[in-house]
Simulated scan of single mutants.
Amino acid sequence: MAAAPLPTAPSDRTRPSPGAGLAYLDRKRGIQQRREQHRDEALRIAETVDAEVRVLATAFRRLRPQAPQLTGQRPVQVLNATYLVADHRADDLALLTRTLRERTGVRIELSGPWVPYSFVGEV
């Protein structure tokens, strides 16, 4: 008659290594820190872009950034603004926009001219 096999301990391959939980949390913290740094940098660049474009504008308005679900694009919109720029400054605005794109590496959309209804006071 054969003896029943003794229960075996789980192999070392199924056990997490010592400190695995701490390493996991450190990775998660690192991911979160990089995400926050990226967001802060994007906001800093947006403020720079806004300040430089305002110099050319007669009037300006900052609008709520649109959600990616509305824009249909993956990148998160950081700055949504409209600037009232005189016709004779249009070339200056186009040049500034190109310069800012090259200097910052961010996507900047320039569109218009549009009807300046955003700048009309309340009636």
Rank of each mutant, 00 (worst) to 15 (best):
I45H: 00
A4D: 12
L43F: 08
A59M: 01
R98F: 02
L100V: 07
A94I: 12
S118V: 05
A46H: 01
R13L: 08
R13I: 03
P65C: 06
S118L: 03
A20P: 05
I45N: 00
A46R: 01
A3C: 06
R15F: 11
A3R: 14
R29C: 09
A4C: 10
I45S: 02
Y24P: 02
A86T: 01
R98A: 12
A57E: 10
L63T: 08
A9I: 08
L63P: 00
L22I: 15
T97P: 08
R103L: 10
R61L: 06
L100P: 05
A81K: 05
E36W: 06
E122L: 09
T71H: 09
L22R: 15
K28Y: 15
T99V: 13
T48W: 01
S111G: 04
T58R: 09
Y83K: 04
L84E: 06
A67P: 00
E102P: 02
R54T: 05
V106S: 08
V85W: 07
R101F: 02
L43I: 03
Q69M: 04
A51S: 08
P68Q: 12
E47Y: 06
G30P: 04
V53C: 12
R98K: 09
R64D: 15
L63I: 08
V85N: 07
E41K: 01
N80L: 13
P18M: 11
P65F: 02
P113C: 13
R29A: 12
P65K: 07
Q66F: 12
A46C: 10
E102F: 10
A51Y: 00
R29M: 11
P10E: 10
